[in-house]
Structures are given as C-alpha cells and as structure tokens.
Design a protein around this nucleic acid. Structure first.
Lengths: 337, 337
DNA sequence: TTGAAAGCGCTAACAT
DNA sequence: ATGTTAGCGCTTTCAA
C-alpha cells in the first residue's frame, strides 16, 4: 500500500547526490547560517530532485526534540466541546501551528486515565502543551507546568496560578461592558444568568457584571447560575422569573444560555427588549438569527487559540514570553437591548 | 518520581533492573506472546518502578511505523468548524484513538498549501489518515487513498469514490424519514431548504426528501439551496415564501438553517407548526430550546468519528474492513410538526 | 524462550 | 565552512 518507489529518500541519498557530507545536508535542511550559498543551492537541488522529506522520528530521536505540541482538552470541557467556542480555539491552534514546524497532537483527557495523560506528556512525547479551559478540580495540569512548558487557554484556577502562563479573553471587562450597555439603556433591575462557578469564565463574568452594577449603585442580587447550556439557561431564567421581582435587563454568561432564556421569556408573555433587554456572551452564530437578534459580547476564540500557540512556540524557542495575555472583547449591538 | 541524574528512563535501564536483555523488555512492552509469565511480571515490575514510558521517536524509527494518524480537516470545512457537527466528529476520533496506541495529529488543510499537506502525509509522517467532509473540488485526498490508508468521514465526491473507504451518516434515509414524518402529519405542500450541492450531505438529503415525496405522489419543486448557515437558511426561507405558493411543511437540511427559517417564518406572521411544520437535521443543541422545539433528524457525530477511527485502526492492523459503513439516524420528534 | 548485534535516519560535538 | 564520528532509544533478525 505504501510504496511509491523503494522507500523514502534519506538524507544520506541527498548527500551523495549533492556530493557533500550528511552533516552539511543536515545543516542546510535546518537552515544553519554557516553554509556557502553555492553549497546550499546544490543541496536544495538534490533535495528537490529526490523529493526528500526529513524523517521526523530520526530527527526527533537525535535532537531530543519532538516538534510536537499537545493540545489537551479535559473531558469535562469536551462534554461541551460542541460549544463552538472550544471548537474554534482548537481551530485557531491548528491553523497557527500549521505555519510552524510543530505538529499538533490533540488529546482528550478523560479523568479516568488522567495519570496516563500525565505520563504521556512527561514521557518525552511532546515539547510542550496547550491546555484549554480546565476547572478548579484538575490541579494536575497546573502542576505539570513545572516540568513541561505549558500555556493555558483561560485562566487556570488553582494554587499554582501565579507561575502559570496563560492566554485569556478578558471576561471581566467583557461582562462589565455588557452590564454598562444595559445600564446605559436605562435598565435598573438587571439580572444575570451566571456560568458555572467552578470555571474561570463563569466566575469572571459574574464578577464583571457585579462590579459594574455596584459602580452604578444598582442592586446586584438577581443572580442564578447555569451550566452554560441552553437548557440550563432556560431553567435559570425560570427561577429568576419565579422570584416575582421585576426584571428589565438580563446578562447571560453565554449565548447558549441566552437562547434558553429567550424561550422562557417568551413563554412568560414578556417581550425582548420591551420588557427585558438581553445581552449574551460569545457571539456564536445563533444570536444573529434569534428573534430579536441578540446583543452580545464577542471574542475571537480562533484568535485565542492562535495566540496560545504563538506564545508556546516562542517560549519553546527560548524567547521570553509574557505570563498573561489578555485578548480583547467587543460589544456587538443588535436588537435585544 | 523522575529518576535521578539522566532524563527519562530507557528500555535499557528497565532491562538492567529486571536482569534481562533489552530485546526481552521490548517484547514485553509490545505484548509478544512468547515470553514467560514470570519474566513478564519481573519486567513489568521494573517498568512500574522506574516509571518507564517508551520513547515514541525511537520506537518509530526502529519499527518504521509512526503510530500517528492524521485527522485532516479541509479549510473549507473548518470555516464551518464552529458547526457542532464537525467539532463532535473530531471529539469522537480523539476519544477513540485515546484507547489505542495511536496519536492524533490534527491538520487543518488550507487550500493554499495543499501540496504541503500532501507531502506531509506521504512523507512517512503518519501511518494513515482520516479526512472529514470534503467537497467535490479536492480530489487530491481521494487520490491519496492509493498511497496511504485513508478513511473518509462522509461519502467522498469524486472520481475515485469507488475505491475509497468511508463512514457516513445515512443522509438519504434520514431525509426520507423527515419527509415521511411531514407527510404522515398530513402536509402536502412540503418545501425543503437544501444544503450546498457540492457537499454529499447537501445532495443526499435533497435526494432523500425528493424520493419520499415522489413516492407519495406529492410535488417536489419547492427547493431552495443554502450554505448550512442560519443566515443562509433565513435567506432561502425568504425566497421560498416569495414564490407566493402555499407551503405547509418544511424540511431544512440542517438545524442551523432551520433556525434561520424559523425567524423568517415568524416575521411573516406564520406559525409553527400551525401554518408550517418544520423538520430539521442534525439535532444540535439549539433545536431543543427553539420555540417551538424543533423536530429533527439526529445522528451521532461523535459515534461517526469514533467509527472512522476504528475502521482505520483495524485496517492498519491488516484486518479486512468494509468499504462503506453507514451510521444510523433517528427522528427526534418535538413540537415543530 | 531469550540474547546479541545490527541498524532505523538523523543531529551534534569535535576535528579539520 | 565542511567532514568525521558517535550515538539518540528502540525493534528485529539471527543464533543459541
């Protein structure tokens, strides 16, 4: 099935054909500066003629570098993997890494064999790792940061946060913007459907909402928590309405929960934004066609992923990197406010 | 923890500690049947004691197998990567592969350097590849099937289809089920918002819808095509309504377009299912909380991904595999019909 | 059933 | 600036 000739051409074959030593070919392949331009040309010609591609395994074995970066998605996150946010982060990482010499190793880390994942990562199989959105529970990955270069996506929650490198969307600022928008629209009884409080995004968005309401001297006790799913958003909205107190504004910690809230608001015979103005978070594609179109806080998960990859690659190259990178958010104003 | 002094423990260290040769340790690690149970035990003890993890590069170099499977997502697909369907397929693949000795190499293949991708795949970097949903345009991958074991996700559209191995959801049957459901509900003027006709899913779902209407002796000319996005679904619905002919049933080729159609139907002052009964496809999480909840055709993209991985792994193991595997679909009946 | 020995294709000192 | 020479850690005949 695999043969197109007699096996792949080796560096040695290139050397022979170019009339130089293997070491020289290796230098050319790795872009060493100390090779004559003429020699480089001859070698490259031979490489092209033979359609030579370096053997990763051999290269890795000899150099003790794998050129592999693992993208670890904890299973708990994978459960909401169908959430476009995570999918896009993965996409961003893949696209960025494609520009480099690194290969992407996608790992769904089930909690069952987290030890296996640990072993794998520390077993010299990868040069570094990218870990997306993990909860306060799995400190294992924050710990790993001491033995393997790791860049987290989203602020890690744990004891070792102080010396972890991470890239995050500015959840606090995004939530403040959302709350401010509601306040500027004249709303005074603003509720929020917060996200899981064991996830940084859940905590930070709630904190931002609260901070802005406090600043405006408005009450900030209309809080219900959901798990980021539409169904839970609907349930939270139901609880909010059941409190029997008036509500004229709502900030949902993500668009999926906002979608759930929409249906409950409608069921209750209330209008959006007439009775309740709504702001979501994430700007996933459904908000656009919702009725009314959802005002939301946009971030670019693809950019987040790409930035994580960039930071790790720079760090692997020995360059100094900032420990924290914040990705900006922006308000997408539509008809729900 | 880590052995003092040098880096990771090597097979040789295990051999020394267990008092056997490196060859024997290798056999144990690879599960060779011809090693005494006692020896196996001793070796495994040493492995555990040293926290030994085989070095992939060395293993790969010596065995001439990479133990790497590439998951290729054409960029055109990645654009709709935020579509939960693809994200879930990726998840399924990752979970399945985690059960094996294979490593997942995720590749977003940009059309710009498709040649680079080709080289990479044929350069001995992977043992096999999984390719998801590609269009009629990129025959490159169907061709690759001759030189590298490949399993496609979704029926490949191209000249070499006949000798490609693929796993697909049964789009034709799913669409027939949707149409039948609408017919059984007494609808007689059933329209469809078909998906892109350069994608197998688009073609097959349209064909299934048409076949079922023909069978029932109903007209099947109410067709508009969308690109699977909510926005395009809305546009298609607008065109359908603009025809000025009565419509009492709608089959959307995916839930995202159904979501778009919903908003247009509402805008037009029509009710669901009163005026128009709607059936979607994919059962993504929004359908549940739509108003009214969307009746749809469910497939399991995670299972699809897992099955693709399973088929490829079996094939790499030299076992005979079925060229075509069809994953079942099922009707999820909610309030939109 | 086990061991000895010869590489797998490449990089990295160290020489020249 | 280029070549020589050892390995990197493992699998795999081939013998014993």
């Amino acid at each position: 099935m695999m043969q197109s000739g007699q096996g792949a051409p080796t560096l040695e074959m290139v050397a022979t054909r170019a009339g130089v030593s293997r070491a020289t070919v290796s230098r050319v392949v790795n872009g060493s500066p100390k090779v004559t331009a003429e020699v480089v040309a001859v070698v490259n010609e031979a490489i092209a003629a033979l359609d030579y591609v370096p053997n990763r395994a051999a290269r890795s074995l000899a150099s003790r570098r794998t050129q592999v970066i693992a993208l670890v998605v904890p299973e708990s996150t994978a459960r909401v993997f169908s959430d476009p946010f995570f999918a896009s982060v993965v996409q961003g990482v893949a696209l960025e890494l494609a520009q480099t010499d690194y290969t992407l190793n996608l790992l769904i880390a089930t909690e069952a064999d987290s030890e296996k994942t640990r072993r794998y990562l520390l077993g010299g199989n990868v040069d570094g790792a990218l870990v997306v959105s993990h909860h306060s529970g799995d400190h294992s990955y924050t710990r790993l940061g001491r033995e393997l270069p790791i860049v987290f996506g989203g602020r890690p929650m744990g004891a070792d946060v102080v010396d972890s490198t991470y890239v995050d969307v500015d959840n606090v600022e995004g939530a403040r913007t959302a709350a401010r928008h509601l306040i500027e629209a004249g709303r005074t009884r603003i509720a929020t459907i917060a996200g899981r409080q064991d996830m940084p995004g859940g905590v930070d968005r709630l904190a931002g909402w609260r901070a802005e309401l406090e600043l405006a001297g408005l009450p900030h006790d209309l809080v219900e928590v959901g798990d980021f799913s539409p169904a839970d958003g609907a349930a939270a909205m139901r609880r909010l309405l059941a409190r029997g107190v008036p509500i004229d504004g709502l900030f949902a910690a993500n668009d999926q929960m906002a979608a759930g809230a929409y249906s409950v608001i409608r069921e209750a015979g209330l209008t959006i934004p007439g009775d309740i103005a709504v702001v979501g978070y994430d700007d996933d594609r459904y908000g656009e066609t919702a009725a009314p179109p959802l005002t939301t806080i946009a971030q670019s998960p693809v950019d987040l992923g790409a930035e994580m990859a960039r930071v790790l690659v720079r760090r692997l190259a020995g360059e100094p990197v900032e420990r924290v990178t914040m990705m900006p958010t922006r308000l997408v104003s539509r008809a729900s406010v």
